[in-house]
């Protein structure tokens, strides 16, 4: 579904953020990308939808090669990649509904979007999604009136209304409390399962990642150093990704969480 071949990014400052990353994500697979700050997690997913231009390698979405697309073709492919952000990245002064519908901008002409005349089917879908995440009553509130968890739900709606095949998720829980974090992760994973979406979720909370995903990929200094199931994350592996530390507590906590979740 998504295939990265030797994807490389060197910033103008000379920092090599990605070192020939090879990665394949199959349809409907939810993958957590873990790694220390500055490992290149954000850069990796931004190179896929080219918010950051990769400097080498190739990225295929199904059979379309993304790195060489013209800007019009790139916009068309971006519609198939929904993105969810760390600080929600809602347009604060627009309403919830406008924020959700902005996910349809790639499908709607300029004047229609400017005059807020979206097709009725888009409007229906927006209401349906807001209802699904429990925010229907907030539809006409301004985005800056919402709490963090609510904003992230709106962010999820905006990504899903694009009708994407792939979700690129950048630290969705980094600014949320532990309970809301789990709710958001659960929502993202559920939505992916319902719609058969593949997802790459950047996350620095290892325990949270282990709870929800089927595959974990570890990135360190721009290179892949681990690719496996959540169970395979042993203290040795975590040391390889993050460096020396006592990891037993982190993993133990995960076991408890798992028990809790299964009860």
């Amino acid at each position: 579904m998504l295939r990265l071949e030797g994807l490389d990014k060197t910033y103008a400052t000379g920092d090599r953020a990605l070192k020939a990353v090879d990665l394949e994500v199959s349809k409907g697979q939810v993958l957590a990308l873990i790694g220390p700050s500055g490992a290149g997690k954000s850069t990796l997913i931004r190179c896929v939808n080219r918010l950051v231009e990769p400097t080498g390698g190739k990225a295929y979405l199904d059979d379309v090669e993304l790195t060489t697309l013209s800007s019009a073709a790139l916009r068309r492919e971006r519609r198939r990649m929904g993105m969810i952000f760390q600080e929600y990245a809602l347009v604060e002064r627009l309403t919830v509904m406008e924020n959700v519908l902005s996910g349809r901008l790639g499908y709607v002409g300029f004047w229609r979007s400017f005059l807020r005349r979206f097709p009725q089917s888009d409007v229906d879908e927006a209401y349906r999604l807001l209802d699904r995440v429990g925010l229907l009553h907030m539809a006409d509130k301004r985005a800056d009136e919402l709490s963090g968890g609510q904003r992230q739900r709106v962010g999820i709606c905006r990504a899903l209304i694009q009708n994407p095949a792939l979700l690129l998720v950048d630290e969705p829980t980094a600014s949320l409390d532990p309970k809301t974090s789990r709710e958001i992760m659960r929502l993202i994973v559920e939505m992916c399962r319902e719609r058969g979406l593949a997802a790459i979720i950047n996350i620095h909370d290892v325990a949270l990642a282990q709870m929800f995903v089927e595959r974990v990929v570890g990135l360190e200094l721009g290179a892949l150093v681990f690719d496996g199931t959540p169970d395979e994350l042993t203290p040795d592996v975590l040391t390889r990704i993050y460096g020396e530390e006592d990891w037993e507590a982190t993993i133990e906590k995960v076991d408890e969480d798992d028990n809790e979740a299964s009860q």
């Binding site: 971006r78 347009v91 604060e92 902005s102 901008l105 790639g106």
Partner: peptide, 20 residues
């Protein structure tokens, strides 16, 4: 970041301006 989010939806330059 808000502009980035609008760009990521596949919006055109003009739409990004109007929404972001």
């Amino acid at each position: 970041v808000q502009v980035e989010a609008i760009t990521a939806t596949g919006a055109s330059k003009l739409q990004t301006m109007a929404y972001g």
